[in-house]
Amino acid sequence: MQITITVNGTTHTRDVEPRTLLVDFLRDHLGLTGTNIGCDTSQCGACTIHMDSQSVKSCTVLAVQADGADLTTIEGLANGSLHPMQQAFWDNHGLQCGYCTPGMIMSATKLVEGNPGISEAEIRHGLEGNICRCTGYQNIVKAVQQAAGEMGGD
């Protein structure tokens, strides 16, 4: 089946089997391997991307469902310099092994949109779909709070 998907501003048309998962389309068909596959069971959030302005787990969407959609992956965030959320994760040591980080950052950027003064409780609830097995979350929450202020609700 032929699908056309815009990823990070570039439009791609490809033939895919209907059973192709969106995460495999991104990684194997487009070579965008920044989006990680973690649990394979829709729990960990490592594969989080933005699809038409919403955070979704790309392991639980079929590529054909995204036909016509506008996607952003971790590769699409930096624009010459690191995105404020990426920089905040760096500054606050919001990662250790880094495996969950692309998904964590994609969730976090969407979470703080329109909410520059987001509370710690809101961040913790909002990131419930992303699992980190290293940090204990403390520095992730700090990073998200810093970036939220810097992004000013954008």
Binding site: T48, Q54, S55, V56, K57, T60, V61, S107, G129, N130
Partner: peptide, 12 residues
């Protein structure tokens, strides 16, 4: 609504 799965799952 606040306790079904997680926020990413609830978006879809």
């Amino acid at each position: 609504a606040a306790v079904i799965a997680d926020p990413l799952v609830r978006n879809l």
